[in-house]
Design a protein around this nucleic acid. Sequence first.
DNA 1: TTCAATTTGTGACCCCTTTCACAAAGGATG
DNA 2: CATCCTTTGTGAAAGGGGTCACAAATTGAA
Lengths: 213, 213
Amino acid sequence: MKYSKIPEATIRRLSRYSRCLEEMEQAGEEVVSSAQLATRCMVNAAQVRKDLAYFGEFGIRGVGYYVKDLHNDIKKILGSNKEWRMALIGIGNLGSALLSYKDFLKQNYKIVAAFDIDPPKVIGRVSEKLGKPVEVLHINHLKEVARERRIEIGLITTPPSEAQVVANLLVEAGVRGLLNFAPTQIVVPEGFMAKDVFFTTILDNLAYLLSNP
Amino acid sequence: MKYSKIPEATIRRLSRYSRCLEEMEQAGEEVVSSAQLATRCMVNAAQVRKDLAYFGEFGIRGVGYYVKDLHNDIKKILGSNKEWRMALIGIGNLGSALLSYKDFLKQNYKIVAAFDIDPPKVIGRVSEKLGKPVEVLHINHLKEVARERRIEIGLITTPPSEAQVVANLLVEAGVRGLLNFAPTQIVVPEGFMAKDVFFTTILDNLAYLLSNP
DNA sequence: TTCAATTTGTGACCCCTTTCACAAAGGATG
DNA sequence: CATCCTTTGTGAAAGGGGTCACAAATTGAA
Ligand SMILES: NC(=O)c1ccc[n+]([C@@H]2O[C@H](COP(=O)([O-])OP(=O)(O)OC[C@H]3O[C@@H](n4cnc5c(N)ncnc54)[C@H](O)[C@@H]3O)[C@@H](O)[C@H]2O)c1
Ligand SMILES: NC(=O)c1ccc[n+]([C@@H]2O[C@H](COP(=O)([O-])OP(=O)(O)OC[C@H]3O[C@@H](n4cnc5c(N)ncnc54)[C@H](O)[C@@H]3O)[C@@H](O)[C@H]2O)c1
């Protein structure tokens, strides 16, 4: 079962399992069955087992899974056992909210550089929000700083008209993962990964469901 | 073809088509083929036609689709031809970013009320961001105000520990659509719709793809 | 040691979504 | 009006993901 194409949905669910296991671990629970985990994550128990089966055998028949071990294994699979170094580009309303998003830290995602096209304009609002002032650099320095600080993921929170421009800069700087919050589809070359977060698509979805009960 | 269950993926794509058509309309393009639209949205041409076929016949064989008409038809299908009245609960970092999110307005989503558990604390930072000061109400008034202002969608941007509490209040107030930004799965009764926006799930996804090239 | 109870891992089945391929329909041209 | 070209709409086939059901493994008690 180990070596086949992994459904993207499986990866999304693993992320959910990981969050649940985190909570269980903190609650001191030591063993969990696929049925229990499934209930908490609102999925089918066979689904849990099948998702895990893509990557190996983690359970003990008749017993279940050791919470701590399974959590570690899933983090290893997802790649969230390491620290991911991120850059944030566009320190406006959304950008400065993300700068102070505590869950990033908790989950080993760390913003290690912030860029804007007009740093003096934004420096005030950013320092105000956090305990210590944040260094906002000019976008012109992206390439050198990205290499220096070994940045692996770029968060794009510029206006939509600039999103592809910034994406190109990130690609040039060798940043392989891009997460785009602007409402434009961005395109990246082979070997790079871009994901879009479209708020209004989700809203449209909700609106459709409300309109067609 | 008209009356069958509509895949959720189809609805998501319709939202993409709508955005593209918006751009084309503004660019003055009058006619578009399924192949052209497909290329722009990075999907298969047959997929475009099949998605539309769920709802009727909108094209002209040998010609294509009239941009303006198709855009209107899709907006009607999605329910985005009407104005949606929303409440925002939790005016912290993310909440105040959303308050000033211009795309909401452009797409007929309107925040008509803002709530927090401590309005005096947040009023400053909100007024600063927008031209005119925003009225932030105490969460205790949610129920009455929701009815008064005919609120249909609630945006939850409180800490995760409060998300379900707020969700329950919204349900009680008869708000049928919920969009939750806190990293906790919220549960709502039959007849209500809740969607979660998990930033870190998307990041986990990206991290996985970067770890397993 | 044997047997009952529990829970995993997985083959087989089913359903939903996507893609393919082509007939049907409309437009343009002479 | 006839012919050719383009593009839609859709039945059929392919593909992928989810669910079911059961054999295999493990524990614990008789
Ligand atoms: N505000 C929200 O809640 C929200 C929600 C979802 C999506 N978005 C999207 O996120 C993006 C940012 O939204 P916002 O409200 O923060 O806008 P904003 O105007 O407040 O911030 C944009 C920032 O990007 C900077 N910028 C512009 N061009 C740049 C460039 N080439 N390089 C570097 N920095 C540049 C600007 O100086 C500004 O500080 C937009 O695309 C928006 O559609 C915003
Ligand atoms: N900051 C981000 O960029 C970001 C990104 C993604 C998700 N989130 C999530 O969004 C939520 C808000 O994040 P934030 O950074 O804005 O936090 P925050 O602490 O800045 O804001 C939370 C706000 O909610 C208010 N609040 C608390 N309990 C309430 C209640 N019962 N009723 C009404 N209001 C209440 C608080 O007074 C505060 O103003 C969190 O769940 C966070 O995990 C934040």
